[in-house]
Design a protein around this nucleic acid. Structure first.
Lengths: 163, 163
DNA sequence: TGAAATTAAGTTGTGTACAATATGTTGGCG
DNA sequence: CGCCAACATATTGTACACAACTTAATTTCA
């Protein structure tokens, strides 16, 4: 595949070089897309007994770390906009896991507070990340390493988005 | 963070050890979820002039590699079921990019064939992967490396899903 | 051969995602 | 003070994703 790389041929290879990146198996992006879906569906059976979807679980993780914050703050943390979060948080409110209320000081904002049920849910969910780490079957160093690469990739995408 | 690891304390750390994995910033899965979304939204402006979404682009990549295949074969390649593919392929048919037709030999199957417009679209799309590689800003080795890790992760998830 | 199991695709219902827009609130600023 | 740009959230519309179910065709095998 990497033979015959003398300069005369290199230009001729350009077209082939370009279209080899169009092969699905060569696409990093497709792997990320697939891996992300696979992870979500791996979470689902663990979260189902807790009546949570994966995005709902993410929102809860934000709230377990710090309660009494605005919709916008959650969105900043998860990279989700109000179009996604508004209905999601309404569903969590319908399950009595949290309460939404207009802020008294700034009525543009909606403040999210966990209920007792919402706080208690954290105990039940503690085993989920551990189970997931087992299934991923990577050690702590490998996870950190992969995380670092993904962070680098993300920052490049964000950086070049400002054009 | 890694100090004080004598055996007496290790057991006491268990609970803290467990809940540290519940922190969003420690979650590999959240990074994958975010990276996947970021990549899709990076594709969108490139694909918009071609009137394709990212999942539609993936389906087209499969078809550019091998035409005249069934819905199921596309789904196997992309890990998508008929619930996702049926409407997606109908949209591509409405754009005159492909044609869907019941197979003559097995009428349960629907065979997908690219139209001339569908084949021609490949030329216009050739620059997309190259542009994306620039934005990702990883060299060929780093991409291969990251891909390998994601493949490993995926195979672990699939493997442990058979329980 | 013919009923039952299997298979392929489509449909329905729920839940994200996000662009674009709407609505109400707040903070300037002339 | 009053107007207006900026802001926070909600709503609408489009497009996945997938579980569960339906429909129709094929295969299996008693």
């Amino acid at each position: 595949m990497e033979r015959h790389k003398d300069k005369k041929k290199k230009e001729k290879e350009n077209e082939a070089d370009t279209s080899k990146w169009l092969l699905l198996d060569n696409q990093l992006c497709f792997r990320l897309y697939s891996a992300s879906k696979a992870l979500t569906s791996a979470y689902d059976p663990m979260l189902k007994p807790l009546d949570l979807t994966y995005p709902q679980y993410l929102a809860m993780m934000v709230l377990w770390e710090k309660d009494d914050i605005s919709v916008g703050e959650i969105g900043e943390r998860l990279n989700l906009d109000s179009g996604t979060l508004s209905p999601l948080l309404k569903k969590l409110e319908a399950k009595n896991i949290l309460v939404r209320a207009r802020s008294a000081t700034d009525e543009r904002m909606v403040t999210i507070k966990l209920t007792t049920k919402g706080h208690d849910l954290k105990k039940k969910v503690l085993k989920v990340p551990t189970q997931m780490i087992c299934r991923i079957d990577l050690n702590e160093k490998e996870i950190a390493d992969l995380s670092k690469r993904l962070d680098f990739l993300m920052s490049n995408l964000v950086k070049t988005a400002e054009d």
